[in-house]
Design a protein around this nucleic acid. Sequence first.
RNA 1: GCGCCCGUAGCUCAGUUGGAUAGAGCGUCUGGCUACGAACCAGAAGGUCGGGUGUUCGAAUCACUCCGGGCGCACCA
Length: 652
Amino acid sequence: MFQEIEERLASTIQRELASRFQLDLKVSLEQPKQSSFGDLAIPVAFQLARELKRSPRQIAGEISNVLVDIPGVSSFEIAGNGYINVRLKRGGYARSLLFAGPSKTAASSGKTIVEHTNINPNKAAHIGHLRNAVLGDTFARMLRQRGRTVEVQNYIDNTGVQVADVVVGFHFLEQKSVAEVRELISNPALRFDYLCWDLYARVSNHYKEHPGSLDWRAQTLHEIEAGTGELAEIGHLVADAIVALHLKTMYRLGIEYDVLPRESEILHLKFWAAAFELLKQREAIYFETQGKNAGCWVMPSTAFRNATGEDGDDSKVIVRSNGTVTYVGKDIAYQLWKFGLLGKDFYYRPWSAYPDSHEIWVTADVPFVDKPPQFGRASHVFNVIDSRQSYLQDVVVAGLRALGFDEQADASIHFSYEMVALSPRTCVDLGIELSEEDRRRAYVEVSGRKGLGVKADDLIDKLIETALGEVIDRHPDADPEERKKVARQIAVGALRYFMLKFTRNSVIAFDFHEALSFEGETGPYVQYTAVRAANILRKYQERWNAPPAFDQVLSEELLNRCLENEGLWQLLLLASKADSAIERAISSGEPAHVAKYAFQLAQAFNNFYHEHPVIAEENAERRIFLLWLTTYVRDQLLRTLNVLGIEQPPYM
RNA sequence: GCGCCCGUAGCUCAGUUGGAUAGAGCGUCUGGCUACGAACCAGAAGGUCGGGUGUUCGAAUCACUCCGGGCGCACCA
């Protein structure tokens, strides 16, 4: 709502300036430094001061003289050294909120793909993967809330080195047959992904101690790519089983996917061959005949970055001298497919359905159903991948550009984020031995190879356990099953908020003590606020009666009177800015802005809660106003929480 | 060596694209529960925004430089 007022005001002022001063410039509004200055600020005098070579304050005076009878505005004031501060007509603004339907959304322009999670299917998910998935899922929710069409993809590298290494572990180290691996997977007493976590670390260690055993990896990779033999079969079993477990872990946090594109289909359907032809035709890559890359197809460095390799040759190998394609090559093919530029498509089969019957599809190399959904062919693509891979993402985009797809290259966004590391204190808690060097660091990097890290499910379990303890304390008589459900909701709220409160490019030094906190700037704080608001609404009905039709009872005059109170007005104004916050977070690519907004709104409401008892209010008109304000703030808070993927528990 | 990111209160972090007196949470100290549930609220102390130079009406924000930390720079993914 706020956004619409803001836009209308900006264009009105722009028109006035154009007709009065023959000035053609874009008027932008900003938030005053302090709320006491007003509701909106126009800094346009500063822009003009430069051109007109006159003092901003004088210009501001002339402009504000002209701005009279602007709808919705009660006053303009000149402040500071040239700001024009705007005060809105409070009652009128509140009235418009009463009648506001669903807020207008930007017209959807094509489909947006958000690719996230992308965990190697060879071991359990860890907290770094959680940051990826929560960021991607929240961004997708933000886009959907604002009316965009979104497709969520989770890329599965089921034929890569990491899967091969676990296969090596089962086959060569443990001498296990296909049947035995199958049994491990179906054994309900085991956590297969945890077992693979340890096995993967053991295999990595074995390679280090017996470098000759790397032949096992080569043999396994070869068989997996060919798709036949016992090793390939184990590979498929492992990857599918782990993917299922990853999806289960993510679903605990409310994270769902639309489609799982797999590397095996990219191979079998010869996606790379199609991309290779394109790249050769357009001369985006060339065959190197000399130097260290002799015999390879390479992309010249001039295409992507002014980087210089350690030894001077900085071109990027796309096809190895043995004829196999690198990861980047495959990724270029995949990125082309996402935009519908490859001239090839996958087949699909249903993988499973979520409880709400939303289906998740997986790629297939043969036709499976008559009319599968249409995937890919997007106009915008966001790849949620950690910032350590930015170099490779640059190469992929350069590939598109070299093929002449500038528009799609521009629409390919590397939605990067910094890693989640461990605080030294948490390492000690986990019994991880630290070197002298590590002890002095602010954080310690996790390592899948070393099996060093915090597993996602362990963290979620621990959060639930902690939350349940608190819930039991506060509600000793409540239904145990419901208490568990509440504890789960609180745990998810705490975890998702924790992953979102940091901006993307700050490294999170994961600390158990902080992550398990439910006080202060946390998800549970916001949830608690929503619960309080809901309690007021419930108890109001018990004490009085069903709330009246607000738009009938709350006249503009009454609203004006009630909103003379600065605190109440500021709360209403802030609550009306939910969509602005989401839109700002989309344009800046920073979900943390929505998290911050949710916290601020919760804070403002908690302050209101202490200062203004609703149910005990004796004046009936005023009581209804306070009830409406509570209802409105609560609705906005729930909308915001929904975007963050956080639920409101029935009680806390 | 080259590229990217970071440096803001004791700690963890924001800072709306260059604007008004730099903000939150945690921690410390003070006060507030017979309840719309204190997972809360109010208040206090705490900063030369890593250092320097520059750009201009105006810089935490932009440029240059130095210092300190992180991550990349494979015929791995």
